[in-house]
Design a protein around this nucleic acid. Structure first.
Lengths: 339, 339
DNA sequence: ATCGTTTCCGGAATCGTTACCGGAAATAAT
DNA sequence: ATTATTTCCGGTAACGATTCCGGAAACGAT
């Protein structure tokens, strides 16, 4: 009994019209008698007609779909994706999300697969492995719209929406300094990532401003990973130069650090301070609750989406935009030594 | 300078062949001279030819894409989706994920939109609002393959993969009983959801087995929501019949409950026990760490994916399968009163 | 009455691919 | 040598929509 979904042809036949007339009625174009249009729309409604998107996209060479490529779907990024989603929805676009799982290979594959006429363009946050940008240059040659966000791609001509990561590193560090901490360690992320370096730079800037000598031994580069952070912290705590505060550039790392601190039996915030980055909701639930740098994730995503749409609709060559949004410090128990 | 991507036609023209020959070479079909096939493949490689999926899908009336509709992307469900992803990848399928955000309306819309020739079938976990299943009956009439998982749809003929939720409720409750708790409250989810009721049933069964009288006042139905759970727990704790243990059917609710318990100044697990459901990773990080029922999420997803593929490839009418996987209790500090 | 303009519609090409049919050439069988 | 069978390839019609072109009918103006 399986009946195929009705097509434009079925409607045309039943009303003794041509497919072109039906097509005109179904879209919002002139050159159509209001009455016949009404008839067509009625029958379409009755048959529950739904246009075949494949056919339309094939013909129009346009899919009204944005390909979003992200390294993972953690709290921050999934919030950003929601922002993209909202911007897309408002413009009648659909979003397809692909995780690269921090793998360069999958990033390349995903880009290629989506490019096969599935999407009109891309909104991208690169994987931590990604160093080359060859696979994106192909897109540029074909003039396929592209916006990068969060983790941007160096040396590529595309609009970008990012957090002011340097500012984030700065306010976190300065806050610790103001709370009286002096030997502040940083758990920085992988050196390959721009966001790591920017946050690290902000850290250094804050130290300099307050005349605290920068000590390279208090810097640990490790993966965005709770376990790595745990071990790194253990090592820091048992070294001669035991820090009296730790700034981690992600919350996962902050949690790892906290576990190590608890293990060591140190009191927080009295003996050691801690500030994370991202402000994931669970931070408020720990004892002590953990301070963190909050970023406007949803807004970043939404802005990326809006810029994409804008550039897509602008047939004329639109300008490259670089949006930088400001972070905000969220102070909790883990770093509140002074009342 | 934007050059359109090469098509099968371009290849044909350059090699003075017909498109049908090229098409044959590009697929794995006989009726082709090995040498010409080699030539074609070489040129395709050189031009970096990628088949246009839209055209292929339009022609074949098949997209090799599975539409996955979920109420949200929390820890458990996103793990399940990863399982689906893996099964799909192995079979050469792509997955498109859509969140209904627990809204019936969006579920219907998403289903309809995806159905417009974007997907070959569905793997679904319904929203908590969903009561009617009309929008799925349409799928059945068109014989569109469909597998339900996690939260199943009542009264519909489709294969399903779920957790043994009754067993989950049972082992959690029995564990609390074995730890000496007697007045065990349950924060059950929305009454509309099958999983709520099953877990509740398991709870009752455990009480009965151990000859503990069931007390309806210790049952609270509320949303899967940390705040609701917080207030519900506050109320429970200040009532005459203050419970000495709480079983929540989700971890979010467990966290809410724990906050209320801490607020009240009760000692855990000495004065009150707590067991959650889902075993989210953060549970281990709280003090005290929270016990929870773990489900094999990835396996559930992967099995759903496999069954889908199987049914899709089986043109003959395949059997309805009902897979029920077993949960596992993960005991932590929040419920360990006896050593 | 003639010509020009609108208004409205149909025909046909097109998007890139696959599927079916048939036919020429080469090979095998009688 | 004739027939039968492979082997390999081309032509063409789909799939379902959009788009361009042109033309018939209706209307208006002179």
């Amino acid at each position: 009994m399986q009946s195929k979904p009705p097509t434009i042809k079925d409607i045309a036949k039943k009303l003794h019209l041509s497919v072109s007339t039906v097509s005109r009625a179904l879209r919002n174009v002139p050159d159509i008698n209001p009455e016949t249009k009404r008839n067509i729309l009625e029958l379409a409604e009755e048959l529950n007609y739904q246009p075949n998107k494949l056919a339309r996209s094939l013909r129009q060479n346009q899919t009204n779909t944005i390909g979003v490529i992200v390294p993972n779907l953690d709290y921050v990024i999934s919030t950003m994706v929601k922002g993209i989603d909202e911007a897309a929805l408002e413009a009648g676009f659909t979003v397809i999300v692909c995780q690269s799982n921090e793998s360069f290979g999958r990033e390349v594959v995903n880009t290629r697969r989506m490019l096969n006429s599935l999407v009109d363009g891309f909104i991208i946050s690169i994987s931590s492995e990604t160093k080359s940008n060859e696979h994106f240059k192909v897109l540029q040659e074909r003039e396929i719209p592209m916006v990068v966000f969060d983790r941007v791609i160096p040396d590529i001509l595309a609009s970008s929406v990012i957090l002011d990561n340097e500012e984030g590193g700065f306010i976190a560090t300065e806050h610790l300094i103001e709370q009286g901490y002096r030997k502040i360690a940083i758990l920085a992320g992988p050196k390959t990532l721009g966001i790591s370096n920017s946050r690290f730079k902000g850290y250094q800037k804050a130290l300099k401003k307050h005349n605290i000598k920068f000590d390279p031994e208090l810097v640990v580069h490790c993966d965005f990973n709770q376990d790595f952070a745990f071990f790194a912290t253990e090592e820091l705590l048992s070294s001669k130069k035991r820090p009296d505060a730790i700034f981690t550039i992600s919350d996962r790392m902050a949690i790892g650090a906290m576990l190590a601190i608890k293990n060591k039996g140190l009191k927080m915030p009295e003996e050691i301070g801690l500030v994370g980055f991202n402000n994931e909701p669970s931070l408020a639930l720990f004892t002590p609750s953990i301070s963190s740098v909050e970023q406007p994730s949803f807004e970043i995503g939404k802005m990326a989406g809006k810029i994409f749409i804008e550039q897509f609709l602008n047939t004329s060559f639109s300008d490259i935009r670089e949006e930088v949004l400001k972070p905000k410090l969220c102070i909790r128990e883990s770093s509140m030594r002074k009342i």
